[in-house]
Design a protein around this nucleic acid. Sequence first.
DNA 1: TAAATTAGTTAGCAATACGAACAAACACAA
DNA 2: TTGTGTTTGTTCGTATTGCTAACTAATTTA
Lengths: 164, 164
Amino acid sequence: MENSQKALVLLRQIIRSTDMQDKEISRRTGLTPAQLMLMQTLRENLQLTTGELAKEMALTQATVTSILDRLEKKELIARQRGTEDKRKVWVSLTDDGVELMKGAPTTQQDLFVRHFEDIQNWEQSMVVASLERVAFMLNAQHLDAAPLLDIGQLDRAQNDHSKN
Amino acid sequence: MENSQKALVLLRQIIRSTDMQDKEISRRTGLTPAQLMLMQTLRENLQLTTGELAKEMALTQATVTSILDRLEKKELIARQRGTEDKRKVWVSLTDDGVELMKGAPTTQQDLFVRHFEDIQNWEQSMVVASLERVAFMLNAQHLDAAPLLDIGQLDRAQNDHSKN
DNA sequence: TAAATTAGTTAGCAATACGAACAAACACAA
DNA sequence: TTGTGTTTGTTCGTATTGCTAACTAATTTA
């Protein structure tokens, strides 16, 4: 079997594993996968606008808005209109949100970290370097293919043109 | 920054990239991500029952049934009642389904393969070994945590007990 | 100042995903 | 063989996702 084929199969396995873990965490936190992803994104960035969130998660603003609505109702996130630019809406975790993300969501990561730290240091470096390689290749790929959102925006722009 | 933290960040990046690529392919094939995943699973296994598909995709049978309904309407898959065990329903790609999967879905993989084959052979081996490492660690993890479906089944079994 | 752009929301729609309840086929014990 | 429980898949009802199109409000540009 070719190395590249092996790599593809392994990548699928990795995706599948993380997918199942996400569902595990969802179950434990009572959040849906999408809500969880948003919370995680927010945990890493502290302050983001709705648009930035959408770009980060590769979703539409409209979709993010509806996810935010539900998280806001649960009081896990808070929205605040920008003072400098009043069009912008800044989103952040509430205390409850921070608290929730302290629990279950991290334990999966902790498990990974624990396993990861069991292996030799030289191998850790090797894995990181390899992941960098893969991440870079995948990134180059969807630059080649032009990302989804940009295409959507181009289409919309064209439509807008042709409508007038 | 710790090696383990780097690895986690890179993993997230990789997930994100493949996620965006899936959406790209979805757009080109006219299939939703879920439908695409099912078709891919089917391409690799030729003949699966509804239950096997559900397990493979980490979804409920009920969910798989509804996705199958739509793919059947598009005549991309076919259902056939088992002859030996008439409870089972065997699912397979139709000719149209095979044809569709020959096109766009592979080009992304081809892109990856092309990039992958650009790098030195020793580095290819290193990447494969590392991905194996990661896949193994992630796998060990959700064995630790007990997979979603098994928990669901246990719960259901307990409920059935307590009901009688 | 008028026109265009940007940020976000709303509305309406198809699809996903789940649990619960069900029907049919099977397995096995009495 | 009959009855009881199990397995396999579907149907139903519901919440959520994710999209586009249409909209409002604020900002920028001509």
